Simulated scan of single mutants.
Amino acid sequence: MNIQDLRYYHELVNLKSYTKTAEKFGVSQPTITAAVKRLERKFDAQFLIRDQSHKSLIITKLGMQFDEHVQSILNEISVAAAEIQQEKEADISFGLPPVIGRNYFPSLVPELLAKGLLNKLKVVESGSYDLIGLLKEGKINFSLLGLTKPQVAPGLKLEIIKHYPIKVIVSKENPLAKKKGIYFREIADQNFIGLNSDYIHTRALAEMVKKNKISLNTIYRSPDVMVVKSLVAQNLGIGYLTELSIDDRDNVVTLPLLDKEQPEFILAAATRENHLMTTKEEALWQILTHK
């Protein structure tokens, strides 16, 4: 069976046009027709019906079911191709979210250096949810992730490393700084400085807002945690950050939330379940998961 026939077929199901499908691949329309006929003969089934009177294309039930399998096959082939290319390049593709890269990854550097792995890492910096997508697509093989729940997409292997609380941060001049802890609802009347949607914090924040049925007076959103901490330190507003991203040099006060149920920042390492690790990759995995 020709893999290209599967590509033609899947695109034809999407576009529902022989002409548009042929144009997309730069081939003739009869090429697409022949590919479909080969597949139908192979499986002894009718996948498509051409309605000449209405000039339309009907996908049969079997045709739709077959396309689900085709998508899975094409995805696996894409992942395999990406893995093979990475192996040729002899680098370890590695995802790293900004907060984890700045506040946790440096603690791993001495061991990575000692094992000769640091210069083998091909680092991709992005938000955790984007990195999960890259893992599934085979564009990276390993990643550190920040999550609010200890689970990821099917097909990925996850190892929890540590749990960090997410806290409210305020300026030392803010009246709230005198408290030992607050309930989330208490921040409703404060100016709020948040992170953009690429961060796990934003999803955790949305969860707490919905749960407490309040709205926030968000005056600014930044893609940079350092900017958020700087603005909060100037008493321009309050923030909501994981304990992992805060240290004594930030000149802010951290307040634990007193709410019984609240999200936390879960630091985890992830790879694909079906990824066969090289010797160096196994050493990296052991360092990431402390095994």
Score class of each variant (00 low, 15 high):
K172H: 13
D250K: 03
N174K: 05
K179W: 00
S197A: 08
E261I: 15
F192Y: 14
I182Q: 09
K172M: 11
I193K: 03
I169L: 09
F184W: 06
Y183W: 14
N217D: 09
K213Q: 15
G181D: 12
S245V: 00
V170P: 02
E273N: 01
L257A: 00
I187G: 01
Y220S: 10
K180L: 10
E264M: 08
V232A: 09
L216R: 11
E186H: 10
L216C: 13
I246K: 04
Q262S: 06
R249G: 09
A268D: 01
T202N: 01
T242A: 09
E243F: 05
D247F: 02
P223L: 11
L236P: 07
D250R: 03
P175T: 05
D224F: 12
N217E: 04
L176Q: 09
L241D: 01
A206P: 00
L244N: 03
R203Y: 07
G194L: 06
N251Q: 13
F192P: 06
A206W: 05
V232T: 12
P165Y: 02
N235K: 03
D189W: 01
I246Y: 07
I200D: 01
A177T: 01
V170G: 03
V170E: 03
G239F: 09
A268G: 07
L255C: 11
Y240V: 00
L244D: 01
A233P: 10
S245F: 00
T271M: 12
D248T: 10
A270C: 13
L244T: 01
V227L: 14
Q234M: 06
P165S: 04
Y220Q: 12
D189F: 04
L255Q: 09
D189M: 08
I238N: 04
R272N: 04
Y240C: 02
L244I: 10
K172S: 12
F265M: 12
K260E: 14
Y183A: 12
T242E: 03
P256W: 11
R221M: 07
M226D: 15
I166A: 08
I182T: 10
F265C: 03
I166Y: 05
I182P: 07
L231G: 10
V225W: 02
E243N: 10
L257I: 08
E207L: 14
L236D: 09
I246R: 05
Q262T: 09
K213H: 15
L195D: 02
V252W: 07
V225N: 08
K211H: 13
G239E: 11
V209I: 15
R203P: 00
N217T: 02
N196E: 13
D250V: 04
V252N: 06
I166M: 14
H201S: 08
L205F: 11
Y220L: 15
F184D: 04
A206C: 08
K213D: 14
T271D: 01
H201V: 00
L258S: 10
A268M: 04
D247V: 00
V227A: 15
N251P: 00
F265S: 07
L205T: 05
